[in-house]
Design a binder for these strands. Structure first.
Lengths: 207, 207
DNA sequence: TCATGTTAGGACCGGGTGGTCCAAAGCGCA
DNA sequence: TGCGCTTTGGACCACCCGGTCCTAACATGA
């Protein structure tokens, strides 16, 4: 993977996060990556579509490294890992200044109905994400109530986080995301067996 | 408001829900509304932007009639109304065949960062929606725990529903939305005072 | 030295974009 | 009858879109 290629990918990722896939033109990407012209771009990518797919892949890899990795930390209690992961989502969004939202959610809203190729790839992203949470939930099973449905709960967590990021973008207020994240932790806490101490730190407290 | 005008608005609403605002061209709308040409369209709307704003308004009016209205039914217990409202969101999405998603969420994801005019209007939509839930929560206050934060809870409900609709679109599976809706009811149920009977019907049950 | 891959730069393509302008027909109503 | 709104229909604008093609200057390493 050449330097130029990743440079193009990075520029495209930024632009797509800001303005969406359709509204980001190849010329924009060329300007963003400081290429000399169209032929230079098409030397590295067969089409804009291919660019889009690879950007999505890279976004997921980055997310896997910086967010999903927490879910797998072997030395930390699984439910605390889940709490840390939710914090990481908040941090990630804070770093973006509340803008840009979730790359997956954005592409999903923009292309899920219109472009099957993107839809299946986005579905795969969410599925891999959900499966990470599911196996964490499986690990935490001794602490959880017997009737906890890991599939449903993992979907609920992802949907709420995606919705929260979207709302935060609209309101331009990170506190929205923080509040929802806290409530989400509280909800996860209700699945913990009674008698368990404060399983999810930070789940209470209005602010 | 002439017939033609609403006809254009309806056609545009459908197209925007399907393909998004940017990807819906004025020519598409003209074809959809069976107008004779561009001049005919621009006889009714000053610009595509104005069209978009009015479509957003109409979508919210429709949503107010068919969804938000339930929140105000005076003869039904407030918490049951909330449960019925969540059911209505599921029904609304089912009618669309899982496609199209939430008009507000879609526009938000597409334009929140790029187009301030739309951003503030979408923010207003969510705010009016949240305020409806807030006043319902205020009404239900005797049944709720003392520390329930209506602002936060209303945001949580909206974010989760928006996220759920988005996930459902990506997975093309209405069961996703149904599951999340059930869990959301369960979460709301945890805010009800102890000793209260089954406040939210349908909140339990895995399927 | 030759080949290969990279960078540079520009001309060009068909088609779509939001938007304007104009001329003329059809219309209901006073 | 005549006024004013609606409808029709098309020409036209500058610009942007994804994508192709071509030429030529580079660097690198075999």
């Amino acid at each position: 993977m050449s330097d130029r290629r990743t440079q193009i990918l990075d520029a495209a990722a930024m632009l797509i996060a800001e303005r969406g896939y359709t509204s980001t033109s190849v010329d924009d990407v060329i300007r963003g990556a400081k290429l000399s012209g169209k032929s230079h771009f098409y030397h590295y990518f067969r089409s804009k579509e291919e660019l889009g797919y690879e950007v999505l892949n890279r976004q997921f890899e980055r997310f896997t490294e910086r967010g999903l990795a927490i879910l797998r930390e072997p030395m930390i209690d699984p439910l605390e890992r889940l709490s840390l992961f939710i914090d990481a989502v908040v941090t990630l969004q804070a770093e973006r200044g509340g803008r840009g939202g979730s790359p997956f959610g954005n592409l999903a809203a923009e292309l899920a109905d219109a472009h099957e190729g993107f839809r299946v790839r986005i579905e795969a992203v969410f599925e891999r994400w959900a499966s990470q949470i599911r196996s964490l939930l499986w690990e935490a099973r001794p602490q959880l109530q017997d009737d906890v449905d890991a599939v449903r709960l993992s979907r609920f967590i992802i949907a709420t986080l995606e919705g929260a990021v979207l709302m935060t973008r609209v309101k331009r207020d990170l506190a929205v995301l923080e509040g929802i994240a806290a409530d989400l932790k509280r909800f996860i806490g209700t699945h913990v067996r009674d008698g368990g101490a404060v399983a999810l730190p930070g789940a209470r407290g209005a602010e």
